[in-house]
């Protein structure tokens, strides 16, 4: 049990670092977004949808492990 939490904690830290990097990149490129993304084209639309999928994938995994490590897991009757 302790080993599982330790592994998950390590995973969480790695995923958290990736999430931090993604958000850092997004927030430091605010000017580019303000100038470029309000002038739409097909490529920018694909990029926006791609960014949303990427963030949901990485941040989704991170938040899952975050609550797991803190002990917020599904009821035992739902755990296989």
């Amino acid at each position: 049990m302790k080993k599982r939490i330790k592994n998950q904690g390590a995973k969480m830290l790695i995923q958290g670092s990736v999430v931090f990097f993604l958000y850092y990149a997004l927030m430091t490129k605010q000017e580019v977004i303000i100038n470029e993304f309000s002038h739409p084209d097909f490529f920018k639309t694909v990029l926006i949808i791609g960014i949303a999928f990427l963030f949901s994938f990485v941040h989704g995994k991170f938040t899952h492990n975050f609550w797991d490590v803190l002990g917020f897991e599904a009821s035992k009757k739902y755990q296989k």
Partner: peptide, 17 residues
């Protein structure tokens, strides 16, 4: 909405966070 340049991806991703 993105095809019309209405999506502010910063706002969307902050709320998503």
């Amino acid at each position: 909405y993105a095809l019309h340049g209405l999506v502010d991806i910063r706002l969307a991703m902050i709320i998503l966070a």
